[in-house]
Design a protein around this nucleic acid. Structure first.
Lengths: 197, 197
DNA sequence: AAACTACAATAACATTTGTTTACGTTTTGG
DNA sequence: CCAAAACGTAAACAAATGTTATTGTAGTTT
């Protein structure tokens, strides 16, 4: 890798997965990308702020969570390498975020701003289509998530976490897993043990 | 209302809410619309079938649900007048549906097929944008739904049902409400009573 | 009108999940 | 390297929620 050409990870592959984009268009996109480094535990979005980016994770791991009425953190999503993290509603509507986004490891992201997205829509031949397909994919993820919440027990969801988030169980503290499963850390510990009542 | 011009309810207003569309474009759309009547209790989509339409509810009420591992129905969504019902994932991907869609009242819908949607994308000036905005709105709904599931108690969610679905509590049997809240009918009855432990 | 069905409420009991506290280990920060 | 903080497990108990069974009412069907 040339030292002067930043490595934007799998972004191009990801775009190509959605739409056709030629070299000239890619150069236009690439000129807008920058890398941003985030230290472990750093919070890059807090509730009440407007989310100014879709963060494409090149390396590291982000956690999206919110805080409920009892001041408990509820982990909503983990963003691994080559996936996105954002408060999409805040980002798209320009309204205050409900979510927090925090790095659980030292992390490198490519931020995509709202302005950049508008340029994609306007200047890429299939820009609107890209936006539609991304929104649809985000929707599918939510759809699956809700189905899991309704149909699976906490233990079943725990056991399928490795499918949704490869290696997640070895990368993040267990209490974050518990909050993702919407159960207490103590209870998750019990479930893993296979306790009898 | 002219007897020969079907009433497609608020569809045009809904499209206009998302994009600009001129009279000529609207005539093209309208010529594709038909009305379909669904009898109370009729099921128009079952798990395993491919969902062939986005159903715009002109009058009546649809229920979207799925069946969990214990053969219990879990109500996922109610579609009131001037809103949609579909298994969006099945519809867009052409894969077998996870959901069932059932009429809880005698209902009139305008089905929008996948082929019609492609024509919209291709022939409406802002067709792709329409698709993107619809996907985004669907996403926002899911987003709010998940936030509710994580942060609110069943009773809180019960009390806000009238906001999400006006008059729903007087229109559908209570056990469907309970399944929407993901609690048992017996427990919902208890919560309403405000039982002390 | 009678029989049947769906529905809601209630009580009693069982199961799941949360809370608190304690303890030992690991990780982190200075 | 040391002290402090974070973390996971465990046990005991409390609270929330599910299950089953019963009853009464209202709506449907015959």
């Amino acid at each position: 890798m040339n030292k002067n050409s930043a490595d934007f990870g799998g972004i191009r592959d990801l775009i190509l997965h959605y739409i056709e984009i030629d070299d000239q268009e890619w150069e236009k996109c690439k000129s807008m990308f920058i890398l941003r480094r985030i230290k472990k535990k750093e919070i890059i979005l807090s509730k009440g702020e407007v989310c100014r980016g879709i963060y494409f994770v090149v390396r590291g791991l982000l956690r999206i969570y919110f805080i409920d009425q009892n001041d408990d953190e509820k982990t909503f999503h983990f963003s691994l390498e080559n996936t996105f993290a954002t408060d999409y509603q805040s980002f798209l509507k320009g309204i205050p975020a409900d979510f927090y986004i925090q790095a659980l490891e030292n992390t490198t992201v490519v931020p995509i701003t709202f302005e950049m997205l508008q340029l994609f829509y306007a200047n890429l031949g299939q820009g609107e289509k890209l936006g539609r397909l991304i929104a649809e994919d985000y929707f599918f993820m939510m759809n699956d998530k809700i189905k899991g919440l309704y149909t699976q027990t906490p233990l079943q969801r725990y056991n399928s976490m490795n499918d949704s988030f490869p290696m997640i169980l070895t990368r993040v503290p267990q209490h974050h897993i518990a909050s993702y499963l919407n159960i207490s850390p103590v209870h998750l510990s019990r479930l893993k043990r296979g306790v009898e009542y």
